[in-house]
Every structure is written in structure tokens, then in C-alpha cells.
């Protein structure tokens, strides 16, 4: 399972200076449109797909895509298009919430490690190492075994297992920013430590991390689908994308649309948010230059 956090090592510490960039590119416009569409599906699915995502019709099972069912039907005769649209909410929730949990935890660990004393740094580094050294899936499996399955469990499990990666990057970023010339200048100017941390270090250190988190949303959904494959993901009959992907896999030879359609939704979300994240990053970098 790949996780988003690692991209950070390749990220530079960009000093955030908001200067409006040039005109938006075609890619950016497309990304924004895709994300808007997904958010619309999450907020008001009935606008895009008025049908019932749970409405079964066994006699219509495994129908190939047609005008009536643009994404075909699944093993219970449910309309895959309707399910993909209605699944956006839960999938996006898993993606966003898991990333938020991972980042939140990482912030605590990372900031403490970077700004508190040596002892705290040593402790948080070790905590992070422990979390890092545990296979993420083991963490998730044990957590689900303790709490029981469900969207909330899956989300927390995924969030927990991505936290160490984010924490590591945050710590590195904060240290890099702390050592930079403008912080030294702020210190020379006699600014208080909390002020330096709040006004200068955090915003500059975290900007690239948040860009990185855009990658994490798609990754978290993929992660959750692996848990569904192991039988421990979203609870049926929720049309969550990862769960749909896992449920369609046994029929891959017979009904490719059952996995390809929700899979494309995941890829579109991941691609659009990554592309947008990159654009934002590129623009802040230009601002730097």
C-alpha cells in the first residue's frame, strides 16, 4: 500500500507568499470541474442520479452498460451509475476524514518533536518510529478487530496508519523552516517564540504538507478498499467505492463494469486533487521565485 506521506521528502520548503498566479490552465479547470462534480454528488446525489442506490432487481443482474444503465448493473441488479454517484459522499468522507485524522495526529507528534526540547523530540521520534515500524495493515486489522467494522472504524484505521508518515514530514519541514534566514531575522527582531511559531514557522512548514494531503485523499480510499477486500471495510449495502470495487472483483471476468466504474471514480478523485495540489504548489513556488 502506498501512502501519500513520502512525497514530502521531495518537496522543498516553499516560503508561502501569496501572489496570484497566471491564468488557470486547462488542466486546472478540468480538475476543479471534476472535484466540483464529485462534491455535488456527495452533497446532493439525487440531482445527478434520482434512482435508489439500494434498489435491487435480481432479474436484471449483471447487465452491461446501456442507455438505461450507463455503468451497467451489479450482482443484485442495482444500477452501478446510481451507486457510484451515491457512494461519493461516503468515499469522500473516508478519504477526507482519514487524511484529517492522519494529519491531525501527525501535527501533534510533528510539532511537539520539532519545537519542544530534546527529550520530547527524542520521545516523539521514538513514538513515530514505533508507529512507522508497525505494518499499517496490521494496525488497521487489530483496530477493526477490537472496535468492529464500519465506516468510522475504517476511517480511523486508515487515518492511524497514515499518521506516522505525515508526522515525519512535518517535523522535517518545521526544522528546515526554523533554520532558514527569515526565522533568524525574526529572532533577531526579538519576536516571541509562540509568535514566531504561529506566524512564521507553521504556515510555511505546513503549506507543502497540506498540498501533500491532497494526494492522501485518493490513497485513503484505495486503502479502505483493501480492507473491504479482506472483508472488513464498509458495511453492506453502502455504495462506498472501495467496497464496490472489492464486491465486483469476483465477477471481473463476467462484468468488468462492476469494478472499472467505481475504480475510475477513485482515480478521478485522486487525479483531480493531486493535479490541483500540484498546481497550488507550483504557484506558491513561483511566488517564491
Amino acid at each position: 500500500m502506498t501512502a501519500p506521506e513520502t512525497a514530502g521528502t521531495g518537496l522543498r520548503t516553499a516560503h508561502l507568499a501569496s501572489r496570484p498566479g497566471a491564468r488557470p490552465t486547462v488542466g486546472e479547470i478540468i480538475s476543479v470541474l471534476i472535484l466540483l462534480l464529485i462534491v455535488l454528488a456527495a452533497v446532493a446525489p439525487r440531482l445527478l442520479a434520482p434512482g435508489d442506490p439500494l434498489g435491487i432487481s435480481p432479474a436484471d443482474a449483471f447487465q452491461a452498460p446501456s442507455w438505461q444503465h450507463p455503468f451497467g448493473t451489479d450482482e443484485s441488479g442495482r444500477d452501478v451509475y446510481t451507486r457510484v454517484v451515491h457512494g461519493a459522499g461516503e468515499s469522500l468522507l473516508i478519504g477526507l476524514a482519514a487524511t484529517a485524522i492522519g494529519l491531525g495526529l501527525a501535527l501533534v507528534i510533528g510539532i511537539l518533536g520539532a519545537v519542544a526540547g530534546r527529550a520530547v523530540d527524542f520521545a516523539t521520534t521514538r513514538i513515530n518510529e514505533v508507529l512507522f515500524a508497525l505494518p499499517g495493515l496490521l494496525l488497521a486489522l487489530v483496530f477493526i478487530a477490537i472496535v468492529g467494522p464500519g465506516v468510522a472504524t475504517t476511517t480511523v484505521a486508515v487515518g492511524l496508519s497514515t499518521a506516522p508518515g505525515y508526522a515525519r514530514i512535518i517535523r522535517t519541514q518545521i526544522r528546515a523552516v526554523r533554520g532558514s534566514a527569515y526565522i533568524e531575522a525574526a529572532v533577531v527582531l526579538g519576536h516571541s517564540s509562540p509568535r514566531i511559531l504561529g506566524r512564521h514557522i507553521l504556515p510555511n512548514a505546513l503549506a507543502p504538507v497540506f498540498v501533500l494531503a491532497t494526494l492522501g485523499v485518493g490513497q485513503a480510499i484505495v486503502w479502505a478498499s483493501s480492507l473491504s477486500f479482506l472483508g472488513l471495510g464498509a458495511v453492506p449495502p453502502a455504495p462506498e467505492w472501495g467496497a464496490m470495487l472489492a464486491a465486483g472483483r469476483p465477477y471481473i471476468e463476467l462484468a468488468w463494469w462492476m469494478t472499472v466504474c467505481p475504480g475510475l471514480a477513485i482515480v478521478a478523485t485522486a487525479a483531480a486533487s493531486t493535479a490541483l495540489g500540484r498546481s497550488i504548489q507550483a504557484r506558491t513556488r513561483q511566488g517564491d521565485g
Binding site: 478498499s225 482515480v267 487525479a271
Partner: peptide, 25 residues
Amino acid sequence: RAVASALEIVAAAVPHFWLASVLIL
């Protein structure tokens, strides 16, 4: 560049279990 970056994103967003089945097929 566009193709390469699309490939990267798709590859990173594919779950192992699905990829395995597609490759076997």
C-alpha cells in the same frame, strides 16, 4: 509529460487486489 503524469496517478490509485485480478485475467 501529461501521459506520464496520468500513468503515475492511475498507478498510485489502483488497489493491489484489483490489479492482481486484471493481470491474471
